[in-house]
Write a protein that binds this DNA or RNA. Structure first.
Lengths: 230, 230
DNA sequence: AAGTGGTCTAGACCACTCA
DNA sequence: GAGTGGTCTAGACCACTTG
């Protein structure tokens, strides 16, 4: 029933990184020093670090060292912005916040984010445009408890990678579903398409590496023939 | 420059499984016996087996043993049939072959399957129906060299998992892209939709674990609101 | 040359499954 | 209780990077 040592070490290191003990991009101590510090063998420390590498928390480079990954950096954000051009590059749209609200979690949010009806969420609606023409509307819900003072932060709008990092949360692998839907009247107006026009729906729940449900996003895309998801 | 021992061992074991030395579902010898047979340490053999588990070639069960995974089995095929119901279950459509052709690879096939223009491919077109109504057309290209006598095999139609297994190829993680397209006149007729109707396009290249490009598939789906991709 | 992660070994003990 | 995979340790040596 006891959690394996290498996972306990992983948890401790992740907590330390999330708390900012080592900044994104900085190197962390070598295996031997860390294993002595935590009182485990080098092999156990290695296993913990290998897991963290597979979780995109650190990168290890032979002959150089182990470095904290900057989750707000472009390459990583690729995991969180699935719309691509045919050449594989991310679609670099301009995101504009439509409105931000704070309110009691409704039933669907409770289910997806494992909340109680008494919990509070932030809701952010935004539109992404490329060369001025809108191609995606986004509806995001985030538990308010995890993001104190979110609305007061300047630098808004920012994507979930940056927000999570600023609040000491490291993102894990999101759960994602793709489906098709039709434009509601409001969405149609934002996207400049006809009501009932077919849209691709991206539904994503992001979970932090310490097990918190961090974000639920539903994006509705009006994709042109030259874009794809991957 | 030398390939690490544990990868050499992995390669040898994968070749042995692909060749049918151990049948799908059967157990393989324990770590200690295997490590003695290959003249490596138990730790090295363990690492090879762990990699093979991550590649879905074997499953390891504490206290029981290590078992060859049947790639043609339902759970695994899930990786290769992305269309799901809202509850997560695979859409169990009935697939009907429209036509099968053999011919010289055209340019796009060469690019995707790393072939030369002189190579031969099989092309299979099929339609999937659920409760009689068509929802997906599929166009598959496979290098003829890798699948001798494909057309003579009975039991056709079968999906790529079963075909690959029968020809001693173990499938790795496919590359997949999702995009949107419009129904061509032919596709529209097969799917019973209007020409130019919006469709979801799944483009997938499957690579075997020994590095062969095994299949290129383009599926065009007419998804209803209750289905999604994942 | 010094320092880092990567590979490889050998062996002890634990946790689980099944007869 | 015998057999399996899972965890943990200790230490040697290799390959790569940097000053």
């Amino acid at each position: 029933m006891t959690r394996p040592l290498y996972l306990q070490v992983r948890d401790a290191l992740i907590e330390r990184i999330a708390a900012g003990a080592w900044k994104p991009g900085a190197s962390i101590p070598n295996e031997l020093d860390l294993s002595r510090e935590y009182g485990v063998s080098a092999g156990t420390m290695r296993k913990a670090l290998e897991i963290m590498e597979s979780e995109h928390v650190v990168v290890r480079k032979q002959g150089r060292g182990t470095y904290v990954i900057d989750q707000a950096t472009d390459e990583l954000r690729g995991r969180y912005t699935a719309v691509r051009h045919a050449n594989g590059a991310r679609v670099a749209g301009h995101v504009e916040i439509v409105d931000v609200m704070e309110g009691a979690a409704h039933e669907q949010e409770c289910e997806r984010l494992r909340l109680e009806l008494s919990d509070t969420v932030y809701r952010i609606r935004s539109v992404a445009r490329v060369a001025g023409s809108p191609y995606m509307v986004e509806q995001i819900s985030m538990p308010a408890r995890l993001f104190p003072d979110l609305l007061k932060t300047n630098g808004f709008p920012r994507d979930i990678s940056a927000i999570a990092q600023a609040h000491g949360k490291l993102l894990g692998k999101p759960e994602e579903r793709i489906s098709v839907g039709q434009a509601s009247p409001e969405v149609a107006e934002l996207l400049l398409v006809a009501p009932m026009a077919p849209l691709i729906v991206l539904d994503r729940v992001s979970i932090s590496l310490d097990g918190n449900f961090v974000e639920w996003r539903v994006a509705q895309c009006h994709l042109t023939a030259n874009c794809y998801l991957a």
